[in-house]
Structure formats: structure tokens, C-alpha cells
Nucleic acid binder design. Sequence first.
DNA 1: TTACAAGTCGGAATGATTACGATATACTTG
DNA 2: CAAGTATATCGTAATCATTCCGACTTGTAA
Lengths: 138, 138
Amino acid sequence: MSIDNTVKILQNKGYKMTHRRNEIISYFSESDGYRTAKNLYEHMEDKFPGISYDTVYRNLHLFHDLNILESTSLNAEKHFRLNCSDHHHHHFICSTCGKTKKINICPMDDIGNMLKGYTIDDHKFEVYGLCPDCQKAS
Amino acid sequence: MSIDNTVKILQNKGYKMTHRRNEIISYFSESDGYRTAKNLYEHMEDKFPGISYDTVYRNLHLFHDLNILESTSLNAEKHFRLNCSDHHHHHFICSTCGKTKKINICPMDDIGNMLKGYTIDDHKFEVYGLCPDCQKAS
DNA sequence: TTACAAGTCGGAATGATTACGATATACTTG
DNA sequence: CAAGTATATCGTAATCATTCCGACTTGTAA
């Protein structure tokens, strides 16, 4: 998800590209993993002293609604990452650093008619543990 | 998870069976799905006027630590249900009523060596949607 | 460059959860 | 079965994540 691409998506819907939004996209582009609102806020504070949590959450939600970010709930706190929606897949998530690795299998392929009569809206498959780097560090 | 069984688990560890704990187990026994701390609090209020949230959360955590309950984070709020750990499986979860249905496939069976070099501590596979009853009701 | 819609700030409000001192209860033992 | 004590609960305040709102600022189209 490039900055240019984001500008287009925003402008198509009447939203503006601001310095803060630009920095948010940069932050996630360099992150390659799940980050919390607080992580982002602390990063933004350095670049924009006095930034409001309102700005952080407003933009997280906006980007999520626009499919620029995806989210997951871990320990009852929401975590966000760039949406890598080129093709459907799931993630291994490192419990320490939040970095992710793609998993190219989807259990829904095998669900068959196991849920006949149920409406399926969404699903989640995530694997948690330590990435190689965090294993070394501990 | 019966009341008698719970008493044994508690006493083995030096915990006591109280009226409130008894009612909490009954509540989840009759629930057959995920419930929030608030759901439980509201139920308990009827039976024990003046009950404290401290009691609700303390016991939810205790039961979770003792493997009597299992939990999942939905919309950044923790949900609990009785731990049905007779054999490993996953759940369909109804977004409206919280009721669950077992899914007897586990994607970890197919993970192979896809995560070579990673330590795997846990995983989650959940399917969300509407159960047949809630479809009719809507 | 102006106008105005969209964005941001500062701070208060809300909702979920945790913490803690004072009091009450369950369970062991005499 | 009464007393003692460790555990549990209450009442309430504190904390943390998140949302809300009115006043002020900024981006962009014309």
C-alpha cells in the first residue's frame, strides 16, 4: 500500500491527504506486523508533538473502513496492520514483536457443508508464538 | 463441567466454593456459548444484589486460569464460555447470541513445516455469522 | 486567494477492567 | 459446634483503551 495509492483512495471518497495521514501510512509501511493505537500514538508524538488520540483513532478507523488497514483483537486490545489483500491468506503473529508471516492455507476450504444452515460472515485463523528473531533475543 | 467437578478443582488448589462461584458455573452451564463479563454481572445482580464487578472479574480469571473457562476477544471485549476440552476443536460463533457450534477440523493439521523456525504457542480458528435461530429472528 | 468542507486539538466522557482497604464467609481444627 | 484464619466479597476509586465534542486549523477546488 503506497502513499500515492492511499492518496487516490482517499480522494475518491472526498477525504484529504494530510501530513498526519501520510506519516501513519509510512509507519505501517515500515512495520510489517500488527501495531496498537498506542504504538502509533507514541510514534506520532515524536513527529507531531501534541497530536491527539482522537486523530490516531479517527484515522485508524477511517483506514480500516477503506480497507487500507486490517485489524485483530489480541488480549482485548485492537491491533492494526496494512491490509495485504492481494490474495486471501492468514497470519502467524509473533507475541513479542507483532511481526507476521503469511500462512497460505485457509481452513474454510475444508469446511464443506459442516455449517449447513448457518450464515457465514467472517472467519479468523491466526497462529501465535515467537518468530526466529525473538527466539534468539530471549 | 459439573459443579461437583469444579468443587474438586478449586479445593485441590486451596480455593473455596462459594455461593457466587456456584452460580457462575450454573450460568455458564446453561449458556452453551460465549458471554461477556457484563452478561454475567447482570445475571448475578438478580441473584446477589450488590455484587461487585471485582467478584465477577476475579472469578472469571480464576476459572480461566484453572481451565474451567476458555476465552476469546471479540471487538476488543473478552468473552467466556465453559472449556469443552474433551478433545481439540474450534467453534462457529453466532454474532448475535454468542452461541457456538463445534467445528471438527483444525488447520494446524495441515500446517506441515510451513512455520519452520517459528515457535508455536497457540492458535485460533473461529467462524462468525448467524446461527439458524438468529437468522429466523432477523 | 478565498471559501468551506474536512481535519485536528484539547480535554472531557464512556466502557471495560483492575486495584485495594475494610468487612464477611468458608473451611479446618480443637 | 465454636473459634481462628485464610480466602472471598464489597464498595469504591483508579486505570486503560476508546469515543465524543466544540473550537480552531488546514487542504483543496474554483
